[in-house]
Amino acid sequence: MSALGNRIAAARAQDRAALIAYLPVGYPTVDESIAAMVAAVEGGADVIEIGIPYSDPGMDGPVIQEAVDAAVRAGVGMRDVLRAVAAVAAAGAVPVVMSYWNPIERYGVERFAADLAAAGGAGAITPDLIPDEAAGWLAAAEEHDLDRVFLVAPSSTDARLRSTTAACRGFVYAASTMGVTGTRATVGDAAEALVVRTREAAPGLAVCVGLGVSNGSQAAEVAGFADGVIVGSAYVREMLEGRGADGVRALSEDLAKGVRA
């Protein structure tokens, strides 16, 4: 069974999209970041993407870079990440780890899968790991019954949409635009076209859309064609600008209305 798949299906049963919130562990501190994740759940997030800070986040824009850079310098590690996973699970949302590949490889793929499962984590999203390179992770995830979420992009060929979605469990992450993370004024038609193509490649798999969504009306727009709405930089901005857990909770409430519109 897939914890992510079940939660997204439950949202669909309520005739709405799931709300997926990203926050990195360790900004401004580990405790404050965990409190913010719990606040995101209280505000209405179904799934928390728990970001593992990384020194070279090649897919992230300036907002997320600024937060994770501070966390990296503070020495945030997998123990802190697993604590966040347990806290999010206790708060009632589904925790999924979001990590560039090297921190997981360094920790040990098998050890990561075992510890993540033990902490109550659903699985992992791996933005720079394509299924072609993921044999070790797929085996470990299978053994520990974890979800694995890979990305598709507007530039993905139909053949790659098929092979990538075939390796996914839980959902597939559709990167809405060609570019890095960050809030955008519009999400763009490319996202909807990609969702349509991805559904054709994998009719049974949930498709969640990330990159660029920052407010309730954008969330409503994406919820009109996707199974889940992923919001990252807008949450991180609440932390960077000092509004902390309260700001995160308020943003979740706004977005939660959006996915129900």
């Binding site: 090649g58 720079d128 390179e133 530039s155």
Partner: peptide, 20 residues
Amino acid sequence: RTGHFGVFGGRFVPEALIAA
């Protein structure tokens, strides 16, 4: 064929770059 020198090399990049 996929760029591996033994266990080294390969492609660890976002999917968006694979087509390029």
